[in-house]
Design a protein around this nucleic acid. Structure first.
Lengths: 142, 142
DNA sequence: CTCCGTGCAAATACTTTGCAAAGCG
DNA sequence: CGCTTTGCAAAGTATTTGCACGGAG
């Protein structure tokens, strides 16, 4: 079917960048990461493709954190942890709501529940260490 | 302590508007809702106060949906349901992750988990009804 | 009089989009 | 050749912020 393969070099690079990291990047992160190899890459292209990947199911949006949308190249169900200090997004390797459970919930609520996202908030290990030296409330987040 | 009470008429009105609805409003929704009573209310003031309520713990952010941040005056733990068609945000009256569970999870992950947000995505009852007449894929969302 | 809160408008920040040129089968 | 993808820059949208004014103790 797909004669005209929808895979330009840059599109592949963007997808690989997304898949090759665990930081749940923003468009800008991907843009910066690819600068060395693709100096003429445009930020608009990164946005366009990330959006496209989400529509195709090749990626998902983790949501907007501190004003920027974060993406995830791992589409199998899993939860996230967001550090309220530095904004880092980490994976939580556990599927709290499988398809089974969603179906059960749908029956109770009347809505047709198709997916679930679980996000935990707190302070990551890295920021916990920094806290040791700071008695006062330091710079908020980011 | 708080001699100079931090409660102007408009601030109270904004908080009440937030608490008096179940729609998880955006700043603009609140602004529009208060127009009749406060014609000279400024959108900036709504933003300022919503942000303030969140900082004070009087409200929480439900997250950014279709580009706009939604707020919730109910701060006791509960889950949300977001309709992928119309963007409606509904409550799910069940606390999936109580303080007890969060503490257990923290021990396993190393992060200090302080709160959790559970969001289900799917199609709300209202949109399910509309679907009946539409065989084709209609207008996406919003 | 002294603060706090506000309106207004300018400034930000992020994301989307139009269009002509470049890429690739 | 024809359709797809991109760079660039302009446009769009949501949110934040500076500043002087207005209100309440």
């Amino acid at each position: 079917m797909a004669r005209r393969e929808n895979f330009s070099q840059k599109r592949v690079a963007i997808l690989n960048a997304l898949r090759g990291t665990t930081v749940h990047p923003t468009a800008e992160w991907v843009y910066t990461a690819l600068q060395p190899q693709y100096p003429d890459l445009s930020l608009g292209t990164v946005y366009r493709n990330l959006k496209r990947f989400c529509a195709e199911g090749r990626a998902v949006s983790v949501g907007v954190i501190n004003g920027q949308e974060h993406f995830d190249g791992t589409v199998v169900p899993h939860a996230h942890f967001v550090c309220t200090k530095c904004g880092a997004v980490l994976d939580v390797q556990k599927d709290f709501f499988g398809p089974e459970k969603l179906r059960q919930l749908s029956q109770h609520t009347g809505q047709r529940i198709e997916s679930a996202s679980v996000t935990f908030q707190g302070v990551c290990e890295s920021c916990q260490k920094h806290e040791l030296g700071e008695t006062q409330a330091g710079i908020p987040a980011q």
